Amino acid sequence: MRVHPIRGLLYWCGWENQVQAPTAKAATARQTTLPDYRHYKLTHGQFVIAALAGALALFGAVYLFYHSVIIAAMFSFAGVIAPRYWRAGLLQQRKDRLKLQFKEALFSLVSSLAAGRSIENAFVSTLDDLRLLYPDPRTELLIEFQIISNRLDHAEPLEQALRSFAERAGIDEITQFADALAACKRSGGDLIEVMKRTSAIIGEKLETEQEIAVMVAQKRFEGKIMMAVPFVFLGFLSFAAPDYMAPLYSGLGYLLLTAALGLLLFCFWIMNKMMDIRM
Results as ranks from 00 to 15, higher is better:
Met1Ile: 03
Arg2Tyr: 14
Val3Tyr: 13
His4Leu: 05
Ile6Gln: 07
Trp15Tyr: 10
Val19Lys: 09
Ala21Pro: 01
Ala27Phe: 15
Ala27Ile: 12
Ala27Trp: 15
Thr28Phe: 14
Leu34Pro: 05
Val48Cys: 09
Ala50Leu: 10
Ala55Pro: 03
Ala61Ser: 04
Val62Arg: 09
Tyr63Ala: 10
Phe65Arg: 00
His67Val: 02
His67Glu: 03
Val69Thr: 04
Gly79Met: 01
Arg84Asn: 12
Asp96Glu: 10
Gln101Tyr: 05
Phe102Ala: 07
Lys103Cys: 00
Ser111Gln: 13
Ala114Ile: 12
Ala115Asn: 06
Arg117Pro: 06
Ile119Gly: 05
Glu120Ala: 02
Glu120Cys: 01
Glu120Trp: 00
Ala122Thr: 00
Ala122Tyr: 00
Thr126Asn: 09
Thr126Leu: 04
Leu127Arg: 03
Asp129Cys: 01
Leu132Gly: 06
Tyr134Thr: 07
Asp136Glu: 06
Asp136His: 01
Asp136Trp: 02
Arg138Asp: 02
Glu140Phe: 14
Leu142Thr: 04
Leu142Gln: 05
Ile147Leu: 13
Ile148Ala: 05
Ile148Lys: 03
Leu152Tyr: 09
Leu152Met: 11
His154Met: 12
Glu156Pro: 04
Ala161Met: 00
Ser164Lys: 02
Ala166Val: 04
Thr175Phe: 08
Ala178Tyr: 06
Leu181Cys: 08
Ala183Thr: 08
Cys184Lys: 04
Cys184Pro: 02
Arg186Gln: 11
Ile192Phe: 15
Thr198His: 01
Ser199Ala: 01
Gly203Glu: 00
Gln218Glu: 10
Ile225Glu: 06
Val229Ala: 07
Gly235Gln: 02
Ser238Pro: 02
Pro247Asp: 07
Tyr249Ile: 08
Ser250Gln: 14
Leu252Asn: 15
Leu255Gly: 12
Leu255Trp: 11
Leu255Phe: 12
Leu265Phe: 15
Met271Leu: 15
Lys273Arg: 14
Met275Asn: 06
Asp276Thr: 12
Ile277Asp: 09
Arg278Asn: 07
